[in-house]
């Protein structure tokens, strides 16, 4: 066998090893959490309050808290994100100002989540005097997801062929009519895919809610948007580092981790199915 061929076989197998290592890492993470967390999952675990200093009982307040915060995040980031994307892609002229706006958005999406947390403390908790609560945390996460939503939505709008717009305009439609009837119906699933992926990332974030509303231990559900709340990721953090009986509550931590990744993956899966259906309709 020639040296070159041997080199090729070795090289390709090296690449294969890299790929297998990456897949194994993921498989291991999932296996560890599912195998150790599944035993803890029960109806009671999902629907009961934590009891006895969080050593027993369920994680209902954490589930409710995460759902509430994600809903507020969605209310902030969906309309503003999609609106900004429609403006940038359909209305804005390609000049230095829009280039600056685009560049800022891209850079904002790379800002560390803890910096958003600091910003949330200053703006919502202190300056607007909302206090540490569900609303502040949701707004902070909403700000964090906005750049992702805008970028993904703009990408979806860009993929709509120009002839769609021109067709409507040629028939005498106004610009907004053209966008509403010819552009949005085709772009909407792409826009939603990006938005849902952003929301799933927000739901799993801990750093921005640390100081804006998440609470260590609350044996009741938030009664209004101005209450503090428990959240799944923060609960997992507490259960694995701050609790006084760490080894004793480890099963609860595993259970919480399993619920959290299930929720995040369910959202990702939903987004993937949307994207898949979109691709299918495009091909037809």
């Amino acid at each position: 066998m020639k040296k070159r061929q041997l080199q090729e076989i070795l090289g390709f197998n090296l690449l294969r090893v890299c790929m297998v290592l990456v897949l194994l890492t993921l498989a291991f993470i999932l296996y560890d959490i599912i195998s150790k967390g599944a035993g803890k999952i029960s109806w009671e675990f999902l629907t009961a309050m934590p009891r006895n200093g969080m050593k027993e009982g369920g994680i209902l307040p954490a589930i409710v808290g995460t759902v509430l915060v994600t809903v507020i995040t969605a209310i902030l980031s969906i309309p503003f994100g999609m609106g900004a994307a429609i403006y940038l892609n359909e209305y804005a002229k390609d000049n230095n100002l829009t280039r600056l706006i685009r560049m800022s958005i891209r850079n904002l999406s790379g800002v560390p989540s803890i910096v958003y947390g600091l910003f949330g403390v200053i703006l919502f908790v202190q300056a607007m005097n909302i206090g540490t609560c569900v609303l502040s945390a949701g707004l902070t996460l909403g700000l964090m997801t906005l750049p992702w939503t805008i970028t993904a939505s703009e990408e979806a709008l860009k993929n709509v062929p120009n002839s769609f717009r021109e067709g409507a305009l040629a028939l005498g439609a106004t610009k907004w009519q053209a966008i509403r009837t010819n552009v949005l119906p085709y772009a909407i699933s792409g826009m939603l895919t990006g938005t849902i992926l952003g929301l799933s990332r927000a739901a799993g974030e801990t750093a921005p809610i640390l100081f804006t509303g998440a609470a260590f231990y609350l044996p009741f559900l938030p009664r209004s948007l101005f209450d503090q709340f428990m959240a799944l990721p923060y609960h997992l953090y507490i259960m694995s580092t701050q609790h006084h009986a760490i080894t004793q509550v480890r099963p609860i931590a595993y259970g919480t981790a399993l619920v959290l990744i299930t929720a995040v993956f369910a959202m990702n899966l939903f987004a993937t199915i949307l994207r898949y259906r979109l691709r299918k309709t495009k091909m037809e």
């Binding site: 993470i29 923060y234 990702n268």
Partner: peptide, 30 residues
């Protein structure tokens, strides 16, 4: 190296890895 079919399977799987919340990764670190 990968055939198109293998690629279609592996790419979403790698994306799943990106979706794991950081706090879960930290938990496994502990």
């Amino acid at each position: 190296v990968a055939s198109p079919r293998v690629r279609e399977i592996i790419k979403p799987v790698v994306e799943i890895l990106a979706g794991i919340p950081s706090v879960v990764v930290g938990f496994l670190g502990i």
